[in-house]
């Protein structure tokens, strides 16, 4: 049996919700509302996170282009996906929202440009 405590981040109350994984499913206590219950269940069963990072860009005023996942990915996939994302390179100009990489590591989630970056003027 596994017991974990999840700090709920749904509202500022920050409830400490304890989740016990027993024979007949999850035993959840310490939450004050339904949303807290849901949050704790998701955090234990299948925690999800947005991926945000930067990738190398050439020909722009800055060296990096910020990118964001098109949806949340499983938390355990965050580091493997980041490894792939950090290997990406693009050339300016890039438009915000354009797909930089489809279906990162088989998650079904795309990696998008998180801003428009123009080509730096020559010289």
């Amino acid at each position: 049996m596994r017991k974990v405590t999840v700090t709920c981040i749904v509202c500022p109350s920050s409830c400490r919700v304890s989740v016990r994984e027993g024979g007949e499913g999850l035993e959840i206590s310490g939450h004050q509302c339904r949303r807290g219950l849901e949050h704790a269940r998701n955090e234990v069963k299948n925690p999800m996170r947005m991926l945000t990072a930067t990738i190398a860009v050439t020909g722009a005023d800055f060296n990096l282009l910020p990118v964001i996942s098109s949806a949340e990915i499983p938390k355990k996939m965050l580091i493997p996906c980041l490894r792939t994302v950090y290997g990406l390179r693009v050339q300016a100009p890039v438009k915000e929202g354009s797909v930089i990489l489809r279906d990162v590591c088989g998650t079904g989630v795309d990696i998008l440009a998180a801003r428009t970056i123009t080509r730096a003027p020559a010289g």
Partner: peptide, 10 residues
């Protein structure tokens, strides 16, 4: 929706 800072600015 949950945007990054650059997306919000854009």
């Amino acid at each position: 929706r949950r945007m990054s800072g650059g997306q919000y600015a854009q």
